[in-house]
Design a protein around this nucleic acid. Structure first.
Length: 464
RNA sequence: GUCCUGUUCGUCUAGAGGCCUAGGACACCAGCCUUUCACGUUGGUAACACGGGUUCGAAUCCCGUACGGGACGCCA
């Protein structure tokens, strides 16, 4: 059975690149009928925070990418990591290194100064343990092969190889007996029976080193797939200055999780001309061979477009709830059962013209405004003396309507025809009076949603 | 610096030697629709990084150049 995992470190936020990695792991597992797991890589106790872990879990849940099993916390597996490192030591495949951090730093600096690659020179590799200086806690380093080459057959990058002379003996256990990332990952992926490791290609060179650990242990390596990174709109590596780094920030900005997933899916992966791909379709179509090798840029315009597509297709009640949550934060609005009803009634028309939940909430806000409502500049310009006179003439006729969409529409058309006006000449001043703006859903639906009493009140306020 | 790696419209991509006078999507421009704004629809601008090969034929294969990206921690 195929098993994949997403393995973020809780030292920052769940950003968009991580979200896509999770998505690809999820889809790959689902497509092949396998399992998708989560491992929190919290071996760096200094920087790992409970808050970051919470954000990761919440972000994944929001995206619909929660793992099939409870998450594995890497920190709880430390005894096992130490055990494996000691095994390697006992077999002579690893050794104690007594270099201090300063010594290593000097070594690197000198190498860089002399134009050589900064690497550990292996000075403790073959020394006798009796030469160990007293009182110094050693690290454990892997005794890596010095000749030949290490080869990785990557599902995305193809066969990649590097000479073993390019790699130094990596530390697998720190002086304080905690495992390093490279070591812990190998042990955990093995123990969790991960068959396919899909991760960002910033890990590609790590893979060679991990391969050396697998080989030393005599373990079979999983299949690797290194997907290209996502860059900001400016082409540079994604960082905090690119704004919405956390996926939860996208939620705050009014993006729908299914839209974000669809967008992320198409970033670095394609399947013919397919663009609108929901979760079920994605599971059906996704496979690792459709993943490209070049880094891609974040494009908010396209994300926004996709969001509009999903917004229009979204359930009205769900959107009404989302809108209410946004409007609740605005003190000038009155949220009553009446306004909730208005929002629910107008939602079909509202969602037709919004591209984000925030935009949707803004366009629905007029429904929760207490009369008299304020008019924006364009609306005020529309309400000329003539327009006001027209509204006064129209009001009694509207009052007599049943205030259904069809009923209101009929009144408006009759009125326009009998007074020799075009529908637009009637609708626009009316819209200004009702909404305080110049845009809204169809004027008939707007009237019907507001209801007779409130509609007439707003018309009267605007016409006098 | 060393190693790994990438390069098709502004952006995301389709393209696995002839189907390519390079397709789709977003964005942009123009028209249509219209009760405003959206939606929709019609059309348009716009790309194979460059140079050499291989081949009857190359966006597709090979080599080089240029420009990017990533990695080189007792971080993950």
């Amino acid at each position: 059975m195929i098993r994949t995992r997403f393995a973020p470190s809780p030292t920052g936020l769940l950003h968009i690149g991580g979200a896509r990695t999770a998505l690809f792991n999820y889809l790959f597992a689902r497509h092949h009928g396998g399992e998708y797991l989560l491992r929190i890589e919290d071996t760096d106790r200094e920087r790992s925070t409970a808050e970051a872990t919470r954000v990761i879990l919440e972000g994944l849940a929001w995206l619909g990418l929660s793992p099939d099993q409870p998450p594995v916390y890497q920190s709880t597996r430390e005894a096992r990591h130490v055990e494996v490192a000691d095994q390697l030591l006992a077999k002579g495949l690893a050794y104690h290194c007594y270099c201090s951090a300063e010594e290593l730093k000097d070594m690197r600096e000198q190498a860089t100064r002399e134009g050589r690659p900064p690497r550990y020179d292996g000075r403790w590799r073959d020394r006798d343990p009796s030469e160990a200086p007293p009182g110094i806690a050693p690290t454990i380093r892997l005794k890596a092969p010095r000749e030949g080459e290490t080869l990785v057959d990557d599902m995305v990058q193809g066969i990649v190889r590097v000479g073993n002379a390019e790699m130094d003996d990596m530390i697998i256990l720190r002086a304080n007996r905690t495992p390093t990332y490279l070591h812990a990952v190998v042990v955990d992926d093995h123990d969790m029976e991960i068959t396919h490791v899909i991760r960002g290609d910033d890990h590609l060179t790590n893979t060679f080193r991990q391969k050396q650990i697998y080989d030393a242990l005599g373990w079979q390596t999983p299949h690797f797939g290194h997907i290209p990174l996502i860059h900001g709109a400016d082409g540079a590596k994604l960082s905090k200055r690119h704004g919405a780094v956390s996926v939860l920030e996208f939620r705050n900005q009014g993006f729908l999780p299914e839209a974000l997933c669809n967008y992320l899916l198409r970033l670095g992966w394609g399947h013919g001309d397919a663009e609108i791909i929901d979760r079920a379709e994605a599971i059906k179509l996704f496979d690792i061979d459709g993943v490209g090798r070049a880094a891609s840029r974040m494009d908010y315009a396209k994300l926004t477009h996709l969001n509009g597509v999903y917004l229009r297709a979204a359930d009205n009640d769900r959107l009404s709830d989302e809108v209410l949550a946004h409007l609740a934060t605005r003190p000038e609005l009155v949220i009553s059962d009446e306004t909730k009803h208005r929002i629910a009634t107008l939602m079909p028309g509202l969602k037709e013209r919004a591209k984000s939940v925030v935009e949707l909430a803004n366009s629905a806000a007029f429904l929760a405004l207490p009369s008299p409502i304020a008019l924006d500049d364009k609306a005020r310009a529309l309400l000329t003396g003539e327009a006001k006179a027209m509204l006064r003439e129209l009001a009694p006729q509207l009052a007599a309507s049943d205030f259904t969409i069809a009923g209101v529409d009929a009144v408006l058309r009759d009125f326009a025809e009998s007074t020799g006006r075009k529908l637009g000449q009637v609708a626009q001043p009316l819209r200004a009076a009702l909404t305080g703006t110049t845009t809204s859903p169809g004027i008939d639906a707007t009237l019907a949603a507001l209801g007779r009493d409130e509609a007439l009140r707003r018309i009267e306020n605007a016409a006098t």
